[in-house]
Amino acid sequence: MNLQTLEKLKFPIGEFHKTDSISKTDIENWIATIEAFPSKIKSLTQSLSIEELNWIYRPKGWSIKQVVHHCADSHMNSLIRFKLALTEDVPDIKPYEEQLWAELADGNSNDISPSLQIIEGVHARWVLLLKSFGTKELKKQFFHPGNMKIVSLEENIGVYAWHCNHHLAHIEQALLYKGQF
């Protein structure tokens, strides 16, 4: 497999690209994507067998079950980061080793139902919070020491809408190729 093919498998919808100007419509669309994610991921995964849950989406990539568990971990962390930014002045957030978390017992479990429940609950709270934002809240920021960047909440809404679609595409890809890499 060539490098270009591997990159396409890693980023089936492309990488996130920050726009120079974020509109109200962008924010509304991104929030709608985040709101729809729990039902979409559940629909894609609820009837999968253990064998299918263990299919990978690319060579040396995560299994479907690890993608689901990762989304629960990542989106919990994101909600906390949003709340920190809303209540503190440009707080440093805590990065985590997502690759290592995916190898832990709970990140590699064949039972994805707890993670689907987490995603459903976190997204319900997260969307309620996001829909309450005015201009002031959208401009709030946090510092990410992992990439040494200050990130605004409006940008991070876009990042997580992309993240939702990115991982849904990974699951669809694993199902399409039946994990055969």
Rank of each mutant, 00 (worst) to 15 (best):
L3N: 14
Q4P: 02
L6M: 10
L6C: 06
K8M: 01
L9E: 13
P12A: 05
E15T: 14
S21I: 07
E28N: 13
W30L: 01
I31L: 07
T33C: 03
T33K: 03
S43F: 07
Q46K: 11
Q46G: 09
S47I: 06
S49V: 08
E51G: 11
E51V: 09
N54D: 03
N54R: 09
P59Y: 04
P59N: 05
P59Q: 05
K60P: 05
K60T: 14
G61V: 08
V67T: 15
V68D: 00
S74P: 00
S78G: 04
I80Y: 09
R81D: 02
R81P: 10
F82R: 00
T87W: 10
D89A: 11
D89V: 13
P91H: 03
P95S: 12
Y96G: 06
E97V: 00
Q99M: 01
W101Q: 01
L104R: 13
D106Y: 04
G107Y: 01
N108R: 06
N108T: 01
S109I: 02
S109H: 08
N110G: 10
S113H: 10
L116E: 04
Q117K: 02
Q117V: 07
I118A: 04
I119Y: 02
G121I: 10
V122W: 08
A124M: 15
L128F: 14
K131W: 02
F133T: 00
T135E: 15
K136Y: 10
E137G: 07
F142E: 00
G146P: 07
G146Q: 11
G146Y: 10
V159R: 14
V159F: 12
Y160H: 11
A161V: 03
W162A: 02
W162K: 02
C164Y: 04
H166R: 13
H170T: 08
H170V: 08
E172H: 02
L176A: 15
Y177W: 10
Q180M: 13
